[in-house]
Design a protein around this nucleic acid. Structure first.
Length: 204
DNA sequence: CACCGGATGTGCT
DNA sequence: GCACATCCGGTGG
């Protein structure tokens, strides 16, 4: 397995969102590693996309990191208590990103359960594994990703992406409209959400 | 299973 | 004020 380099992220955002499906999100924090297979992403296309935070925001403020070159994290607080983890794409002053919405837990399941207040067992059933990271807020809690991680380098040691998860064909990936962007007008309908078709770990 | 309200902070209008 | 790229626990079928 190889760590994904910056060139991967500095490309067309829809391509990055699609190609992230099946790759492995890896996290190392407080001495504990954990990881999961990315099964659901959403692309946010900056100035062309009413759903994107940078649609009407300049480089001052929370979305500022989106104006930096791709390959870093953009993390923000939502509903006062949850965080969402995004991967900044393209080049400087092209403020686009990919929201990572759900992963299938792979390693570090014990520490992720502890962070999510889920009872850990050696032989956990799907019902409980599903609860760990099947949504952007849950994923951040499980992986201990907070606003402090916004702007951090995804080619460093704390958060990064690995290939060698699932090698998904285009036929295995479905594009659908994004979730919970009712404020985005016509852009609600754009098929910018990508899921691994047969995964059981996609958000509801 | 479905639906619904509450939690809770930040950045807009 | 209020909306928000959310989640959870309660209630009722």
């Amino acid at each position: 397995m190889n760590k994904i380099g910056t060139d991967f992220y500095r490309r067309d955002t829809l391509t990055v969102a699609r190609e992230l499906i099946g790759k492995i999100l890896f996290r190392y924090k407080d001495g504990y590693p954990c990881s999961g297979i990315i099964v659901e992403t959403e692309a946010y296309l900056g100035k062309c996309d009413r759903a994107c935070h940078s649609y009407k925001a300049d480089k001052n403020g929370r979305t500022g990191v989106m104006y930096l070159p791709g390959g870093i994290a953009y993390v923000y607080l939502i509903y006062g208590m949850y965080c969402c983890f995004n991967i900044v794409t393209r080049n400087a002053d092209e403020p686009e990103a990919v929201l990572v919405r759900a992963v299938e837990p792979v390693t570090g399941i014990d520490i992720m359960c502890a962070r999510r207040s889920i009872l850990y067992r050696d032989d956990m059933r799907y019902r409980d594994l599903y609860k760990i990271a099947s949504g952007p807020g849950k994923l951040c809690k499980a992986f201990s990703i907070t606003r402090e991680d916004s702007g951090s380098d995804l080619c460093g040691d704390a958060i990064y992406i690995l290939d060698g998860g699932i090698n998904a064909n285009n036929d295995d990936i479905l594009a659908t409209p994004r979730k919970n962007i009712g404020y985005a007008g016509e852009d609600i309908l754009l098929p910018y959400r990508f899921i691994l078709k047969y995964s059981r770990f996609i958000s509801k």
